[in-house]
Every structure is written in C-alpha cells, then in structure tokens.
Computed example of a mutant assay.
Amino acid sequence: MLSYGFSIKGKAHIKAGVVCQDANMHGEIAPGLYVGVAADGVGSARHSDIASGLATEKLVEYLERHIRADYGIDEKKVCLKAGFQYAEKAIEEYVQDCDDMLNEYDTTLHVVLYDGRTVVYGHAGDGGILVRTVSGETKVATFPQKGSDGVSVMPLRAGEQSWEFGYFPERVAAVMLVTDGILERVIQPQLLNLPATREEIQNSDRHKKNVYLSATEFFMNPYCVLGNKNLQDPIDLYHYYINGEFLDAAQDWQLYLDCMRRGYQSMYDAATAEKICSTMTASVPLWNIEDTTDDKTIVCLINENAQIKVPKPEYFYEPDWAKLRQHYEHLLYPAGFGGEDPLAQPQTPGGKEEENSKNRKKGGLFKSVFRNK
C-alpha cells in the first residue's frame, strides 16, 4: 500500500500570520487495514487549529485501541462513529479545562478505512472523499455538508445527527481525502458542475458529482508520481505541486505532463497516452492550486497492485473549458448572451483539440476561467 498526506498553510493564512488550521494522519491501523484522516479547522473559530489536531489525533487513538482488521463493514462503521464521539468529547474536555467557548474550537473531520478493496468512511463537514475504482473511474463518495445558507459549514460539533458513515459499494483502487479549498478549486471546479438550467441554480440540494480527472489521476494513479521511476523524490514533488508556489510555469507544466503520460501509459499504449495528453489544457491544474488561498490538505491511500479495468481513452480527455465558460455566462446573463446555449449544441469533431492546442501556445484557459472568482 502506498500512502501520503499533506497539510499546507494557505496563502491567506501566511499573509495574516495565522497558523495552518488543517491536520491529517495516515498509515496502517491494523494488519492489512489502513486509515486516512483529514480535518479542517473552521476559519472563523480562533482555536480551530487545536480542534483539528485534537480531532485527528483522538480519532486515530481510538481506532488504534478498538479497530480490528477482520471487522465487517457494519462493525467498522460503528467503530468510526464511536471514534467521532471520542474525538468530540476530547475537544469538549479541552475547552472546559481552558474555560473557553466551544464554538471557538470548530473543525471538520473525515476518515476512511481501506483494506485495498473496500472503503468505509466517516464524514463531518465540507471536505470530500473520492475513490478511484478498479474500473479506472474516479467517483465522489461524500458530499460537502453545508448549513441552510449553503455557505456555512456543518462542523464536528454539529453532532451525530449530521455525521455520515458509510461504505463505497464498488471495489476501490485508491481513495483520497481533501479539505474544501482543494475540493472546490481543484478537484471539483465550478465549471465542471454547472446546472443544466437557471432554475437549478437555486437548488441547494444539488450535489457536485463531476471531478477534474487530470487532477485526480495525478494524485491517485500510482504510476503518475509515486511509482514514476524517473522521479528522485515523489513525495517532494507532491509537496511542491500542492504548495502551489511555482517557480517556472513552462518547466512545471512539462514535468506535470510527463507524469500524466506515465500514468496513462500504465493503462494504454504510448500513442493513446499521448493522445489523451494532447487534449490537456496547459497550466489548468497548476494554477488552480496556485490560486487556492485556503489551507490545503490531501491524504491518499493507493493499492498499487490493484488490477484496473481500463475505460475508453475519451473518458480522460480534457473538458472543453471554453464551452463550459459560455454555458456559465448563458446561465448568468441569458438576455445578454448572444446565441444558443453552447452545451445544447453538438460538439464539432476535432474542435476541442484544436482549441486546446491554441490555448497551450498562450498558456492555457485557466486564468480566463477561474482567476477572477
């Protein structure tokens, strides 16, 4: 089993002189059973960094004492729920000892138990858990928990009625936990999850299900980075890209592209892998991370021996960002938008690749698509 985890201070916190409010842990918790935990301290709570650290540490502490590798799915879910209760109580006791206010110690909490095949999870808050299945597809296992306003987060303190425990019903080759900054900016960007109509915009129950595969493969395909024999230190490379302080955009793009080629070559022949990469829009995954100002946490557990049933190559083709942007403008300004909704029009054969080729020459579509948000 391969695993890695990072919690990196966001640019907004660096500028304000605030500590990183995220925390994570990962590793083998019982023979053949692995755990990944991510927690995101709520920014408006003064001591959320203490809360995220305590929640992560105490949950793992409980699991180390009580989890067994031979537990079934239901037993694992019961154990995770008890672990959440244990972590919540630990925070409450800490606050009482400090004679402080409990709402100043708010945090999210997300956990997975993974045996190389099955994922059982616990989820409280606005982060996300994603899986790469043995079918080669990446899917969403959980959805962000928001308040009634659709913006505020439901923290661990919201209690058992808001916590979610479950398992993913397909065989899993890799599982990833991310906090909301990475989830919303990199993994599930807005343009990939636009509603079909203006009426759906107001539907607060509408869940985002589409993921940006060029990013998820980079993090979850073991041959992109961790199993890439051309890389001297894969963990350092992950840290560099997640940190988002890029030194040479052209060089960083070429290195990223080489990693993606090697990942796709683990599933397809070299020509097909090159075809997939030729559709990729330069710099989109890099600059998404660079513009993420919140703290960034990614935890990933990968079964490098999983046998992948390869999907059709088209599954991994780059989204048509220009067309999605036009659809976005059509939703916002239908009266002022000239022409039909672009997503209602048939795709011109070869048009997307030609558009992406033009954008690679000028640095990619990213800045016109995302930067001004």
Results as ranks from 00 to 15, higher is better:
G72L: 02
G136Y: 12
I129M: 05
G244H: 01
E137C: 12
E164V: 15
T108W: 06
C20I: 10
N228E: 05
V112M: 06
S368V: 04
I129L: 07
K209I: 15
K146G: 03
Q307N: 13
P234R: 03
K58N: 04
N210M: 02
Q21S: 07
I29M: 03
T197Y: 01
G136I: 15
Y315F: 11
L255I: 09
T216L: 03
C20L: 10
L33V: 13
Y264A: 01
G53T: 10
A82Y: 09
Y34N: 13
M25I: 08
E200Q: 13
N243D: 15
A215N: 00
G336S: 11
G36S: 11
Y34G: 03
R157F: 00
G263C: 08
R68V: 05
G27S: 07
T272R: 02
G363M: 07
Y333K: 10
Y333R: 12
D269K: 07
G263S: 06
L2F: 15
A322W: 12
I276G: 04
V211I: 02
G227K: 09
P155V: 14
A250L: 11
L177R: 02
L247T: 13
S357P: 00
A344R: 12
K323L: 12
T281Y: 06
G363W: 07
Q347P: 03
Y223E: 14
D99V: 11
K9D: 00
C98E: 15
